[in-house]
Design a protein around this nucleic acid. Sequence first.
DNA 1: ATGGTAGACGCTCTA
Length: 260
Amino acid sequence: MKIATFNVNSIRAREELTIEWLEKKNPIDILCLQELKCEETKFPKESFERLGYKIAVNSQKRYNGVAICSKRGFERVKKIFDIPVLDEQKRLIEVQIGDIIILNIYAPHGESDENDPKHKFKMDFYDALKKYVSALLHMNERVILTGDMNVALANIDVYDAKVFENRVGFLESEKQKLRELLKIGLFDCFREKYPDKKAFTWWDYRTAAIWRDEGMRIDYILSSAKLLKKCIEINVDLWTRRRRSPTPSDHAPLVAEIAD
DNA sequence: ATGGTAGACGCTCTA
């Protein structure tokens, strides 16, 4: 089973590119999308349905928005988590596919200024997420958490640790929150598989950073211990990113193969 | 010198 996570930076702007990518690749069974930037009703469902996907969307106008597209169907779609900081914006969606729980997340971006309310929102979001996922892991042995976590964990996860010092996504407080999430029983599949490999999932548009590979690894496929053992391969796919036309997202998809 | 691009929306915010 192939599972991918992709921050598309507007599904409407990236519909053509995403569909072309899906057609070109060996079948992606489960595609987790973030930053749809459109209302639920405006998600181009038909294009994905034509490729055999069933779609679950939790989204809002202009900002945020997540979706899960599955060739294997799904049940138990969850969009409301009854935790105010997680429900305030459309950043989470969960489904069950067979005996696996998939939780797809677009974590808040935050700000480099730790006094900014957006930083607090990010910290609170992570605290609430840890609490929720902790309970989820107690009830299920097979959990996959995918998405844009907006945090790079270590020096190897940014092109230059000096450059990223005190920058959003690389603050000590942010790394701490993501590490805490991993401590409750989630594993960073990419880093577990490739302890020394440098591979990024996001490059700044503004500096055309993709052409110098000056990026950050902020998108993840995290799994419970049981599923980590079944992770056969995991890699960043640059096909949608290293191009000028059609305009790419600032992120690239991360794709994992999990043994059935 | 506090830049630069991209997207949605509508005269600006978010990333």
